[in-house]
Design a protein around this nucleic acid. Structure first.
Length: 314
DNA sequence: AACCGTGGCAACCGCTTGGAT
DNA sequence: CATCCAAGCGGTTGCCACGGT
């Protein structure tokens, strides 16, 4: 008992796929495509359930899959993205062309986790499941990799003149691209605040075929003023505090009929992504806590996004 | 040779999401 | 609304190769 929910109790094969089965699936998909996965096994002559076929195709057989070891760049990206979004493997995979969520998840669980968890200190507290919190030395290590040159003093984060953090900006800036000299350029309906020049944005090691997906903010503050065609709602501005900074930014990415809604009102509910940045000096932790939430814009003062980083005095 | 522990990774399970009705 | 169903997602399992004893 406890038997497999998918598929009606035919003699459905499970376990590893044979080369013959692979061939059947490839042949079928490449000639017919897949309309409905549950129909695929029958039409392709496979004793599998549709779910299994889908998984096999997605994770292994599809032609644009990328195999082999992860490059250092990919690894770095995974680490940074995981720091930003936690165990959202599919989301992370969307930043690595040809890599699957399964592969990245396996890679993380078998290798990177080990690598990061060198000093397994007193980080056992708290109940965070998907949020990521790295010790300062670990975070430092990543930052140093990014900086490419080793700073003289690696002891604490405080020695970095311009503390930086990295997070995924996909939901925040839907329209933008990376210029040849590695700055983020806001497209179309966005305009930059006149007080802000593009130097404020520094794109860190951004893959050119994935522009606009990852930014590293070195500045202490940036402000965007979208035009009315684009709705972005700040919930709370980042606030500096003793020993670091914490706060929430939230950005509406509510769309309707493929268009950004431009009739924001105080009654409507908007889907937002918010990020909680924190730096705890006493604990020596540094990280982001992303989560999605539905907020009600009963006191919307739309128009700005303000992201403040750590005080420069750090 | 036989056994055993280990790690990598493909595949599975169950839950969630989203669209159609 | 509710219901159904396919697809997506992330945690987990279990197979298998490999190295050590």
């Amino acid at each position: 008992m406890g038997h497999h929910s998918c598929c009606n109790q035919q003699k459905v094969k499970r376990g590893l796929w044979s080369p013959e089965e692979d061939e059947k699936l490839i042949k079928y998909i490449t000639t017919h495509g897949y309309g409905c996965w549950s129909e695929v096994p029958e039409k392709a002559g496979l004793q599998r359930c549709g779910k299994s076929c889908r998984l096999r195709w997605i994770n292994y057989l599809r032609p644009d899959i990328r195999r082999g070891r992860f490059t250092p760049e990919e690894e770095k990206l995974i680490i940074n993205l995981h720091a930003a979004v936690g165990n959202r493997w599919a989301h992370i995979a969307s930043h690595l062309p040809g890599r699957t969520d399964n592969e990245i998840k396996n890679y993380w669980n078998s290798w990177i986790k080990k690598k990061i968890r060198k000093p397994s200190k007193a980080t056992t507290n708290s109940n965070q499941s998907s949020q990521s919190t790295y010790t300062q030395n670990q975070q430092l290590e990543f930052l140093n990799q990014d900086l490419a040159t080793k700073p003289q003093n690696q002891e604490t984060l405080f020695t970095i003149p311009n503390p930086s953090f990295i997070f995924d900006i996909n939901p925040i800036l839907p329209a933008g691209h990376v210029t040849a000299n590695n700055f983020y350029q806001i497209d179309q309906n966005f305009q930059e605040n006149p007080t802000l020049n593009s130097e404020t944005w520094h794109v860190n090691q951004l893959p050119q075929d994935h522009p606009g997906e990852m930014l590293q903010f070195n500045s202490s503050c940036l402000t965007l003023t979208p035009l009315l065609e684009n709705i972005m709602v700040p919930i709370e501005h980042m606030q500096s505090c003793v020993g670091g900074a914490h706060g929430i930014i939230a950005v509406d990415h509510h769309q309707m009929n493929d268009q950004w809604v431009n009739d924001i009102d105080t009654q409507h509910e908007y889907s937002c992504s918010s990020y909680n940045f924190f730096w705890d000096q006493t604990e020596g932790t540094f990280g982001t806590t992303p989560h999605d939430e539905i907020i009600s814009t009963t006191s919307s003062n739309m128009g700005d996004i303000v992201i403040s980083s750590f005080p420069s005095s750090l």
